[in-house]
Simulated scan of single mutants.
Amino acid sequence: MKFVSGTVRKLVLVAGVVAMTACTQMDRFHGFVPPQDELDTIQIGVTTKDQIITDMGRPVADRALQNNTIYYAESHFRLFGPFAPRLVDRQVLAIDFDANDRVRNISRYTMEDGRVIVLDRRVTEDGIADVSFLSQVFGSFGRLDAGTFLDEN
């Protein structure tokens, strides 16, 4: 009886430790925003885009073709047990360049600003313009070759 009692105690202890560690708060950090001391070295109108990328690393998004701006982003998520991760903090650093690729402006946005910045638009075009499924199926009947199905050479 003593053996069963000791084993049960150990199992209860292990289950308690597992339950406590499963509900431990965990913080996750994603992305990178250069620290303020590095940003202080940037000179408006003097520092170039290439210098920024060399000194601070590749940005998370480069929209140079659209508005000549690069973005650095950093997010802090808090996970607690089985619940979905909760966004605690997000910072976005936008560095604008003029036509000569020299720094024009530096902007920092946080969650409190409430401004939505699309860093990467991930939309895949299907290449099908207003054609229904049945139209595609019926349209392919004329292009079938019997030799393909009969494996004739």
Rank of each mutant, 00 (worst) to 15 (best):
R102M: 00
M111I: 14
T48M: 02
Q66G: 05
Q91M: 11
Q51A: 11
I117C: 05
A94W: 04
F83V: 03
A61G: 04
F83G: 09
R104S: 15
K49F: 15
I70S: 06
L65F: 10
A64M: 07
V88Q: 13
G81W: 03
A73G: 00
M56K: 10
A64Y: 12
K49V: 10
L93S: 07
Y72K: 00
D62M: 08
D62K: 02
A64T: 10
F83I: 08
A84C: 06
E74Y: 03
S107M: 10
V103F: 09
T69A: 01
A94L: 05
R122A: 14
T110M: 04
D101N: 15
D62E: 03
G114E: 11
L79N: 10
D113M: 08
R78H: 07
L87H: 04
R102C: 03
I106H: 02
A64W: 13
V92Q: 01
D113N: 15
L87N: 01
A64L: 04
R108D: 06
F80M: 14
R86S: 10
F97T: 08
R115S: 06
F97C: 01
A94M: 01
N105M: 12
I95H: 06
A84S: 12
R78W: 03
L87C: 09
I106T: 07
G81N: 05
L119Q: 09
Q66H: 03
H76Q: 06
R78K: 14
Q51L: 09
R115C: 00
V103W: 04
E112L: 14
P59Y: 00
L65G: 12
D55Y: 04
T48Q: 04
A64I: 07
Q51D: 14
S75L: 09
D62C: 01
D62V: 02
L65S: 14
D62N: 12
N100M: 10
T110D: 04
P85W: 05
R121K: 11
K49G: 00
L119C: 02
